[in-house]
Amino acid sequence: MATLGANQYGKAESRVVRIIRDSPHHEIVDLNVSSSLRGDFAGAHIDGDQAAVLPTDTQKNTAFAYAKLHGVSSPEDYALALARRLLEATPAAREAEVRVEQYAWDRLGSHAFLRRGGETRTCVVTVGRDTASVVSGFRDLVVMKSTDSEFKGFLVDEFTTLAETDDRILATSLVAQWRHDGLDELDHRSQSDHRRDWNSSYDDVRDVLLSTFATTYSRALQETLYVMGAAVVDTLPGIAEISFSAPNRHHFLVDFSGFEVPVENHGEVFIAADRPYGLIECTVLREPPA
């Protein structure tokens, strides 16, 4: 006999662009917003009864309305407010989740802008009836070390062709997500109280990650990720844990030996290969106090 398992529903990828026009120098906040509701929606699935369902179109409309009514001081603050509102509007829901991607723009003038490349800022906010969690992060942060990286001493079998190296290019398109600690004091029902400086927190984590990457000798990407994560949880008390997904962007030295004209390549010209690639993932947590 069939039974209904876990389910949720929502509106995916509402492209919310907020222009702040309260001064001659306009500001842009460019978001991709997805919302989901989880709870007792069995009637909709089993009986086709929509009485408990807040339409996904309403979720979309609320996402746009809250960009104006609440404002967007940060993706986290906006997502918390939106999740609280959706939960309040849906009695059958036990949780509302809001995922936000923010795309950055650089200023060209008072009201002209250039879409910036580089990483995309992200956050995932989940608000329950008595709880709230915030996971901030980014994706597509491309970093490289042209030296101070090795890879050797690895397991070898009959199919191994990779040569050991004391000096290689280390590059990755980094995805990082970190969970904020100490949210118990947040009134999850409040639309305005207990706001944190989410933007400063994001900048702090990003700065620690990049400075650690730049100054740490790498014996493997695994070690580099751990050292970066440890630097975050050890120096930033508001971060409980951080997770990484790091595809290895391989760079292979070009072989010029077949040319009729001798060309030397002393670690100067490489092929950048996008696939297949090694994928390294890990989570670093702050050890709980004894």
Rank of each mutant, 00 (worst) to 15 (best):
R168D: 04
F159N: 11
E287D: 12
D274E: 12
T126K: 00
E97P: 02
E281W: 12
D49V: 09
R249S: 11
P247K: 01
V205Q: 03
V124P: 00
P288I: 10
E223H: 11
T120S: 04
T212C: 07
E164Y: 12
L69G: 09
I271R: 06
P247G: 04
E264G: 13
F259Y: 12
E101W: 03
I280N: 10
D130H: 04
E241G: 03
L114K: 09
R84G: 00
G137N: 01
E223P: 01
A51K: 11
K145T: 04
K11I: 08
T131L: 02
E281A: 15
M144A: 11
A81K: 07
Y66C: 06
L31N: 03
G117H: 13
S218C: 08
R195L: 07
P247L: 02
T165A: 15
D166R: 07
V98D: 01
L82K: 00
W178A: 03
S245E: 09
Q50E: 13
I169S: 07
E281C: 15
T56S: 14
H188Q: 04
F64N: 02
I28E: 14
T235W: 07
A65M: 15
L37R: 00
I280V: 13
D106Q: 13
E185G: 02
F159Y: 15
F138S: 00
L174V: 12
G267V: 12
A65C: 09
S14M: 11
Y277I: 06
D148C: 13
I46S: 06
A230S: 11
I280M: 13
A230W: 10
S23D: 15
T216N: 01
N7R: 12
W178V: 02
R121F: 05
A67I: 02
T216A: 06
L236W: 06
S110K: 10
L141D: 03
V127A: 02
A132W: 01
H180C: 08
A6L: 11
S146I: 07
H266M: 08
E164N: 15
T62Y: 03
V263C: 04
D22Y: 08
L108F: 13
V284N: 07
S201P: 01
G39W: 04
V135I: 13
